[in-house]
Amino acid sequence: MNHPKPFPILQLPFLAIEEVFKAMDPFEIINFSMISKRSKGITMQMSFCVRYSIELHIHETLEIRFLGTKSEISCSYVMTSNKEMDGRVVETECGRHINRNVLKYSDYPADEWKQLCQHVLEIFKNRQSTF
């Protein structure tokens, strides 16, 4: 990957950051919120309308799923104990429905999943969540 050009996003006015958020997908929003306390605070302040519903899945794998507009797109964090799969994005199409899975490695997937769930529910606190 080529070196990203630095850009001081946190120096922008709040409304401009909000506009940036509107163009980001939930994974990017979550990654941004994990950068620092300030970025987490900014994420929690975002007031634009809800576009995703959150589902927490516990079956063979542990997942956090974000369902987009009219359920045509869903993005999922899938916990994995295979280190080589970390960060890999798997996209599957099922008719009009697109499912994007991001695999996340952890030595302790259950703990990591729990922490991630807490974080996600905290930053999207005003939004609907289903279990």
Binding site: M1, P8, E19, A23, I35
Partner: peptide, 26 residues
């Protein structure tokens, strides 16, 4: 405003937290 912000969002597209830190110049 929206075009400019969309441009910034593209800088963060597909990046994980560590890569974002480099972009945001914390």
């Amino acid at each position: 405003t929206s075009y400019c912000c969309e441009r910034i969002a593209r800088m963060l597209r597909g990046k994980n937290t560590q890569e974002m830190i480099k972009v945001i110049t914390l």
